[in-house]
Design a protein around this nucleic acid. Structure first.
Lengths: 183, 183
DNA sequence: CTAGTTTTGTTGAACACACAACAATTATCA
DNA sequence: TGATAATTGTTGTGTGTTCAACAAAACTAG
C-alpha cells in the first residue's frame, strides 16, 4: 500500500536501539538471577505471582493467560511443567465443563516466597534504583502509551491491557509487603 | 546477607508491572510482524542489520554476539540456521586461526531490505508514533540509565554497552535512509 | 620454550515457545 | 430444537534458547 517508508530519524533510531539494548540487558539480568537462584524462568515466576494474588490462589487458564501475556498454548505447556514440579495443580471448573483451573500449591507458594526477595532486589538494582523518581513516573506514562498503541492493533484491547492502560487506574491488588511476592 | 527486603512501593510496583506488560506487548507485536511477513525472528533480523552495517558486511562472531546481545552459543546456533537459509556464510579469520567471520550474502541483504520497511512501520506504530518527542527523549535517558546499571553488574561493562550508555554518544553508523535497514 | 590461563567458537541435550490442528463445550439464533 | 459459530484448552511438531562440556588457538610468565 505505502509506496514510501517513513524511516526513523537519526534521533529516533538512536533511542530505539538504545532502548532495545537496555531491555535486553534488563530482562537478561532478571531472567538470569531468577533462574540461577530459584530455578524459575521469569515468565513462570509471573504465573505464580498472579495465582498467589487470586482469590483461593486459583485462576481459570484463560484469565491466567491474559494476566501473564501468555498464549493459551504456551500457558498450557507451562502449567504442565509447573504441575510436574508440584508447584501448581489443575482442577476442573465446576461452572464450565470446558474449563480448567490452575491452583497454586503450598509448595508453589513456598517456592514463590523464597524467590521473591532476590527478585525484587534485582528489579531494584537493574531498574528502580537506577532511575530518579521523576524518571519512574515518566516510564509509567510511556508504558501506558505503549500499551494503548498495542491495544489498538489487536483491536478491542484485551481486558488485561485495560488494567494497565490508564495512568491512574487502581490495580487489583495493593500489597507491596510480605505476602505480595510481586515483582 | 540482607535480613530485610526493600519491597517496592505501590507506585514503583505499578510502574514496574505496567512496564513489563508494555514490553511484552511491544516485543510481541514486533516479533509477530517480522515473523509473519518475513519469516525472521527479531533477533535474526538484528543480526542481519549489524552485518549489513559492518565493513565488507562481515564481522567476527564475538563482535557480532556483543552487538546483538547474543551469547556465543546462541549466536553459533543462529548463524548455523542463517547459513542453511543462505543468508550468511562463515569464513575463516585470516589473522586469528580460532576465529570465524560471518558474512552477509547478497541473498541475505535482499531479504533484509525486503523486511526493513514493514519492520520500521511496526516500530513506528508500536512505539515511536505513540510517544511525544519529549517522551522519546526521556526514553533515551531512561534507557541509558538502565544500561549503566546493567554494566555495573557484569563488571567492566562490555564494549557494546559503552556505545549506548552515553546520552550523546555518536553511533557507529548514521544512515537512516535506504541502505540502512535498521530498526 | 613450556606450562598454565584466557579467548574463541562449536556441540548436544534439555528446556521453552510458536503455530496449526484438534476435541469438547457453550453461546447464538433462526 | 437444531445448526452454526465461538470459546476453552490440549497436543504435536518444528524452531529457538540455555547450559555445560569441549577443542583449538592465542596470550602470559616463569
Amino acid at each position: 500500500m505505502e509506496t514510501t517508508t517513513r524511516w526513523l530519524t537519526a534521533e529516533e533510531q538512536r533511542v530505539w536501539r538504545r532502548f532495545l539494548f537496555a531491555c535486553q540487558s534488563l530482562f537478561g539480568a532478571i531472567e538470569g538471577q531468577l533462574l540461577r537462584d530459584s530455578g524459575l524462568p521469569h515468565g513462570y515466576y509471573e504465573i505464580l505471582v498472579h495465582l498467589s494474588e487470586a482469590p483461593d490462589r486459583a485462576l481459570r487458564m484463560s484469565q491466567l493467560a491474559a494476566a501473564s501475556s501468555y498464549s493459551k498454548s504456551r500457558l498450557s505447556h507451562a502449567v504442565s511443567r509447573l504441575e510436574m514440579r508440584g508447584l501448581v495443580v489443575r482442577m476442573d471448573c465446576p461452572t464450565d465443563r470446558r474449563g480448567q483451573i490452575a491452583k497454586l500449591t503450598d509448595e508453589g507458594m513456598a517456592v514463590l516466597e523464597a524467590a521473591a526477595p532476590g527478585h525484587v532486589e534485582q528489579v531494584r538494582r537493574s531498574l528502580i534504583d537506577a532511575l530518579t523518581p521523576e524518571q519512574i513516573r515518566q516510564l509509567g506514562e510511556i508504558s501506558a502509551a505503549m500499551i494503548a498503541a498495542a491495544s489498538l492493533e489487536s483491536a478491542a484491547g484485551s481486558q488485561a491491557a485495560a488494567a494497565f492502560a490508564e495512568p491512574e487506574a487502581d490495580c487489583l491488588e495493593e500489597e507491596e509487603d510480605p505476602g505480595g511476592c510481586d515483582g
